[in-house]
Amino acid sequence: MMERDLLAAGDLAASLAVCAGRLQLERRDTLVVGATKAHANDVVSDVDIASERLIVDAVRAAWPDDAVQAEEGHGRPGTSGWTWVVDPLDGTRNYISRTGPWSVCIALYQGEQARMAVVHEPVANETFSAVDGGGALLNGAKITASSGPPLAEALVGVSFQPGPETKERAGRVIRELLPLSGDIRRLPAALNLAYQAAGRLDGGLALDTKLWDIAAGALIAREAGVVLGGHGEEFSTELTIGAAPALWPALSERVRAALQRPTA
Rank of each mutant, 00 (worst) to 15 (best):
E3P: 00
D5F: 03
L7T: 14
L7S: 14
A9M: 12
G10N: 09
G10M: 05
L12E: 08
L16Y: 07
G21I: 11
Q24V: 01
D29L: 14
V33T: 11
V33E: 14
A35S: 15
H39L: 04
I49G: 12
A50Y: 03
V59F: 15
W63A: 13
D65K: 10
D65C: 08
V68R: 03
Q69C: 06
E72T: 02
H74Y: 13
H74C: 10
G75M: 09
G78M: 06
G81C: 09
W84S: 11
W84E: 10
V85H: 07
D87K: 00
G91D: 11
P101F: 01
P101T: 08
W102F: 14
S103Q: 09
S103D: 07
V104M: 05
C105R: 03
I106E: 05
Q110K: 02
R115I: 03
A117T: 12
V118W: 09
V119G: 08
H120K: 01
P122Y: 12
N125T: 04
F128N: 04
S129Y: 15
G134M: 12
A141H: 00
A141Y: 00
K142W: 01
A145C: 15
S147E: 14
G148N: 12
G148D: 02
P149Q: 05
P150G: 12
L151H: 08
E153Q: 15
A154F: 06
A154L: 06
V158A: 15
P162F: 02
G163C: 09
G163P: 00
P164M: 03
T166R: 07
K167L: 13
R169T: 06
L178S: 15
P179N: 02
L180T: 07
S181L: 01
G182W: 04
I184H: 01
R186C: 15
A189M: 12
A194F: 10
A194P: 01
Q196M: 14
Q196Y: 00
A197R: 04
G199N: 10
L201V: 00
D202N: 14
D202E: 11
L207E: 02
T209G: 11
K210V: 00
W212R: 01
D213S: 05
I214M: 10
A215K: 09
A216N: 09
A218D: 05
L219P: 00
L219W: 03
R222M: 07
R222D: 10
E223I: 00
G225I: 07
L228H: 05
G230M: 02
G230E: 01
G232C: 04
E233K: 13
F235D: 00
T237V: 12
I241E: 05
G242V: 00
A243P: 00
L251R: 11
L251G: 08
E253M: 10
A257R: 04
A258F: 05
Q260H: 13
P262S: 08
